[in-house]
């Protein structure tokens, strides 16, 4: 499915592997958490990615994150916001690999997804046809200010800007 990062649509170097399929030699593969737990990492793969769902056991997700270079977090619909918190937890626990949001997300969520730690979004074809690259990139940049500390907001953090202004004034 189409993949976007902050530069727009990009080719996907990863392959999603059904639970019963072997990994192509030297490929970067994404497997389900269940498969990883039952079978371990697929033999021959160059890099391991794991797909998790919000209802997956947080301990198991943390374990997988320790072994994976990519975590794909599933969203059952764009209104299902659990994945935002899953990403925050993973980043807070120190996961430094690639974080991908997977599901029928919409352009208007791009900035928030990135603020919570996602690097990229993988969306269904039909959605990509309706919401083109320009819309995604425009939506990601429509807010350049935010109030929350500790999130990777696009543009400026208002609290930090105020603090800087205070320090400037004090000097």
């Amino acid at each position: 499915m189409p993949l976007l990062d902050d530069t727009g649509f990009v080719p996907d170097p990863w392959t999603r592997l059904a639970d019963d399929r072997p990994a192509p030699e030297g490929a970067r593969v994404i497997v389900s958490l269940a498969r990883l737990r039952e079978q371990g990492p697929p033999a021959g793969a160059a890099a391991l990615g794991v797909h998790v769902a919000p209802e997956d056991d947080p301990e198991a997700v943390a374990e997988a994150a320790a072994r994976a270079a990519l975590i794909s977090v599933g969203f059952s619909s764009f209104a299902d916001g659990r994945g935002f918190s899953v990403a925050r937890r993973l980043r807070a626990a120190g996961f430094a690999g690639e974080l991908r949001a997977f599901g029928p997300l919409i352009a208007d969520q791009f900035a928030a997804l990135r603020a919570c730690g996602f690097d990229a979004v993988e969306i269904p074809e039909a959605l990509a046809a309706r919401q083109d690259e320009a819309q995604w990139l425009a939506a990601a940049r429509s807010m350049t200010l935010g109030y929350q500390r500790g999130y990777a907001l696009p543009g400026r953090n208002i609290l930090e800007a105020r603090r800087a202004a205070r320090e400037e004034a004090a000097r």
Binding site: F78, A79, D80, G81, F84, S85, R88, Q109, A111, A112, L113, A115, C116, M143, G146, Y147, Q148, Y151, L153, I158
Partner: peptide
Amino acid sequence: RQWSSLHPEFTFLG
């Protein structure tokens, strides 16, 4: 009010 405005994590709650 400020903290909750367009909170990136909490705008698609249950």
